[in-house]
Amino acid sequence: MYAQMVDTGTKRLKTLEEMSPEERDFQEKVDAETKIEAKNWMPDGYRKTLIRQISQHAHSEIVGMLPEGNWVTRAPTLKRKLQLMAKIQDEAGHGLYLYSAMETLGASRDEEVQKLHDGKAKYSSIFNYPTLNWADMGAVGWLVDGAAIVNQVVLQRTSYGPYARAMVRICKEESFHQRQGYQILLDMMREGTQEQKDMVQDAINRLWWPALMMFGPHDDESPNSQQSMAWKIKRKSNDELRQMFIDQTIPQLEYLGCTVPDPDLKWNEERGHYDFGEINWKEFYDVLKGDGPCNHERISTRKKAIDEGTWVREAAVAYAEKQKQRAAKAA
């Protein structure tokens, strides 16, 4: 999930009787699965929640380019380099697309990016972990894009039309990335040397728990979920999504011939699901707060890019302005 712990600004759901006529009308539309569009009336909290969630999602796409940028210059074959470059380009595209969806709600891209750089806006905690060997490029595709898809497939039915439509397109591309990521790992496990196989296991060991953290805190620790579910921004709970991800991923893990660093992981016949151990929630909240291995580096890299690019963007604006004046004079 690329958006974690999105604040809705409400701690208790209103009943239909407590709502204003506009709110009631809105809620009934949502309940009837009618998509909300940009021009429709919406509660202020709904708008703000969506801006937070979509901007987090967009920021995640952009920050998420950095751990891959760490390896794109070292991709080991022409084919893998081209694949990784295309994946990174897709992510920049997703970022742009999501910022546009966010702008339909009246938010400004520049302002939201500024919040990110000031440490006021979040992005997915997963990108605060380093990518330390080449197999991470496979594991990120398989686990990170995989976890994102589990969430985003559900978001294709989210109540806000522009966000739902963005998800349809993004899901297609991310499914492709996930298969590519898995293929990187599979090729190394099947035909690789022992050193390559060790890389794969090492990547999974480091990324497994952070991938599970992408779904956010337990449902009973997630005070904003209830409102988001009522507004149908969120369609399934954090714990449900996490369980879905684990259930679909473990057979793939076994097919690879790898393990995850969780001694409590085992199939529960009665539940029809895998049981698994407890996430290190202190680490989760630390990383979210800014105290993860790469938080500092990721934000300072993004900030530097945008700050040092100021003169470039100013030049483009000044040139466009001059061109406009010239055209006006000529006319």
Binding site: E68, Q89, G309
Partner: peptide
């Protein structure tokens, strides 16, 4: 150009320069 990943002066340039690199 791929060294510039995540470091271009604008998101649109991120796309364009990676496109050229590809």
């Amino acid at each position: 150009l791929s060294e510039l990943t995540g470091k271009a002066p604008a998101l649109e340039e991120e796309m364009a320069s990676m496109n050229v690199a590809l």
